[in-house]
Amino acid sequence: MDIDALWLTLRLAALTTVILIALAIPIAAWLAFHRRFYTPVLEAIVALPLVLPPTVLGYYLLVALGSQSPLGQWWTSTFGSPLAFSFNGLLIASVISSLPFAVHPLLTAFTSVPTKLLQASTTLGAGWPRTIVKVALPLSRSGLATSAVLAFAHTVGEFGVILMVGGNIPGQTRTLSIDVYDSVQAFDYSSAASTSAFLLVFSLLVLTTTYTLNYRSSVPRQLASSYPQPVTVIQ
């Protein structure tokens, strides 16, 4: 197995997860606690990467990040290197394509937090940010963990978008999934086999962890006992 590719994949997945968790908490809270007539549209936008073909996402990202786009030009003139076909470009692509995997479990967890508790918190004078951090998040711990695990795992497994935006450059944009594709094309079936086996075991472990977390959270516990949380896995 290609160690460079493994390291790159882990770095990409870790950074994507940290960024996504930071984004997912406010997004999920807004979708859960600030429901308006337009909320379904926002939910649909967040869920888009689930149904859009990776090529469509890849195409838009390439156009948005490429050296001909305003963003691409601004990035190149500011940081001296282009955004497309770079690690940072991949990071942007992964954050967008894994967004629903981070938002959905958290959203489900937030919506099953007892409304009375949230009302109690706001009535006692805590603002929404404080209520979310002190009340909603602690009651959504397993949802948060599921979000993190799925965001990480989906980034590790991402292929189409990465191939289109990354360009398979060793040490920079060749992740494990791309490495398997490249090994097969090079007739290096032994390398493809070991990397594939690794990814298979990894994915199985991740899903087992996710289901374990979900099972634990559905076991009745103190206040939340009368409000069982639905089991959610988006795949």
């Binding site: 282009p82 955004l83 076909f85 060793p170």
Partner: peptide, 21 residues
């Protein structure tokens, strides 16, 4: 030397879009 193998035309598109080769 770090190599990426692929089709010549795809590389041209990537290079025109700023790929670091």
């Amino acid at each position: 030397v770090r190599v990426t193998y692929g089709s010549s035309g795809q590389f041209m598109t990537q290079i025109l879009n700023g790929a670091p080769f």
